[in-house]
Amino acid sequence: MLRFPGQPGQPGQPGQGPLTPDDIVIGPLDLATRIDEALNVQAVAFGLGADEIAVRRQIVLRHLTFPGARALGATTPGGRLAGFVYGMPNDRSHWWSTVVEPYLREQGQDGWLDHSFVITELHVHPDFQNRGAGRALITTITDGAAEPRSILSAIDTESPARGLYRSLGYEDLAVQVLFPSAPKPYAVMGAPLPLRRR
């Protein structure tokens, strides 16, 4: 069961009862403080090595300085970080935008780079996948966005992550997008906000 801050049954509320071992709480995450724990989740979920994680650590810390950057965590009753998401209002001057813009422009979709909340990273540890944590993380963070739509990139293959994004209303805007040093092509996807619910 997933619980959110302020939701009935939240720990610390009188008379609501304790969480069960399967409960995961979705709430704000101080990503800078818990960066190593978050990157460990990403490493396991995404199959990254120590060198890749060291590079991503600096990237994440830089991203957190951008205006409007926000992070949420999925935390177990014992305080373990089961997953995380972070994102920010998109800016065409950001590196990611400069890479995807030609692909989007070729498809007549580069307007998506404006007035969009970009999901920069979303990862759930394999021990906690298929319990709704990823869905809860992305819907909760985008529910707090001022922008009318959201964009993200995902490896361009039919994966559970891509299926999740489609179920939320994301559609392919460009495919076979190549990022420098990335071994596989990506797809850029976009969805109107709020995201579709089941």
Rank of each mutant, 00 (worst) to 15 (best):
D91F: 00
A38Q: 02
V25A: 15
S116W: 03
H94N: 13
I24E: 02
P148F: 04
L104D: 07
G27M: 03
I141C: 02
G49P: 07
V177Q: 07
W96I: 10
P67C: 01
R166S: 10
P192V: 08
Y170L: 10
D127S: 13
V188G: 05
L81N: 02
P11V: 01
P180K: 10
P18D: 12
P160W: 09
A146N: 11
H123D: 15
A191T: 03
T157L: 11
E37A: 15
S93M: 04
R198V: 13
T76D: 07
L72V: 12
A45T: 02
A69S: 12
H63C: 06
G12E: 04
N130V: 09
R80F: 11
S116H: 07
D114H: 04
P180W: 10
A191Y: 01
V188N: 00
I24T: 09
F66T: 10
P192A: 15
R34A: 08
P14M: 07
A45Y: 07
D127R: 08
G79P: 01
G73K: 02
L61K: 03
L168F: 06
L168W: 06
R149K: 14
F66W: 12
Q58E: 14
A38I: 03
R56Y: 14
L168Q: 07
V85A: 14
R135C: 07
G134I: 09
A146K: 08
R56N: 13
V99S: 12
N90H: 07
N90Q: 13
P102V: 06
T140H: 03
T139G: 06
V41T: 01
G15M: 08
A145D: 07
